[in-house]
């Protein structure tokens, strides 16, 4: 499998505090990679370094083939990002949001138009194109935000707790979109607090106190830790955590 993210002893210090300590892992093309951790374990720090938003203190990392120290601009062109706190403008319409994001990634006018139509029909939201985003139900907003993060056809998409607070049906519909994207070759890097969602990932890493405490497929992790489900795996690991933010 082609590797799209690779890190080698990636470390971030804030003064004396080591937020992320010698992270080494690889993520392959089209993989759904679950990135879990207790509050304050260093997830956000690690994710920011990979997105090119935060300069690492030491170690190596490349994302989509680009170096996180020197080629952050190229990295940004090749990744999509969606967080629970929406990346959508509530006071713009659905179509305007899509066009805006397509625009800032430098898509041509004809591409923007084509992408907008394509995306609306894929989401079944043609009827809502002219509605303000603020008028949409939460679940729709999240689906739209996800699709928008893919509008420039990135190689990797980072999802930061994308399904917080939505109902179980919408949550599953959201995962359908994730599967669909992964199947078409996009690498999905996702954080979540729902442990059943961790089971949907191809591989899962669990961070505790700034280090990766476990990294494997959910099935193997459960076997290794003799746990009935991922929640128990997580509990066994995170319980040992000493620090909090």
């Amino acid at each position: 499998m082609e590797t799209v993210i690779s890190t080698d002893k990636l470390t971030k210090r804030f003064g004396d505090f080591i937020a992320a300590h010698e992270l080494s892992f690889e993520v392959g093309k089209g993989e759904i990679f679950g990135f879990l951790g207790a509050n304050g374990a260093g997830k956000t720090t690690a994710m920011r370094m990979l997105c090119g938003l935060l300069m690492p203190s030491s170690g190596k990392a490349s994302v989509a083939g680009f170096d996180v120290y020197t080629e952050t601009e190229k990295i940004k062109r090749n990744i999509g990002y969606m967080s629970q706190k929406f990346s959508l403008y509530e006071d713009l319409t659905v179509a305007e949001n899509i066009r805006f994001y397509a625009g800032i990634y430098g898509l041509s006018f004809s591409d923007i138009k084509r992408k907008t139509d394509e995306l609306l029909s894929k989401l079944g939201m043609q009827g809502e194109a002219k509605k303000l985003v603020s008028a949409l139900p939460l679940g729709w907003k999240q689906k739209l935000a996800f699709s928008v993060s893919l509008v420039h056809e990135p190689r990797i998409v980072f999802l930061d707790e994308p399904t917080g607070g939505v109902d179980p049906v919408t949550r599953r519909q959201f995962w359908d979109l994730i599967y669909y994207a992964a199947n078409s070759g996009v690498t999905v890097f996702v954080t979540t607090h729902y442990m059943d969602e961790a089971e949907y990932c191809d591989r899962v890493s669990i961070m505790v106190d700034g280090v990766i405490a476990a990294l494997d497929s959910p099935g193997n992790l459960k076997k290794q830790m003799n746990a009935p489900d991922m929640e128990d795996v997580f509990y066994q690991l995170a319980r040992k955590a000493k620090r909090s933010e």
Binding site: G37, A38, G165, H193, Y235, A241
Partner: peptide, 10 residues
């Protein structure tokens, strides 16, 4: 328990 990890939730 929203936004809190599994250990704290338990």
């Amino acid at each position: 328990t929203t936004g809190v990890d599994v250990v704290s939730r338990k």
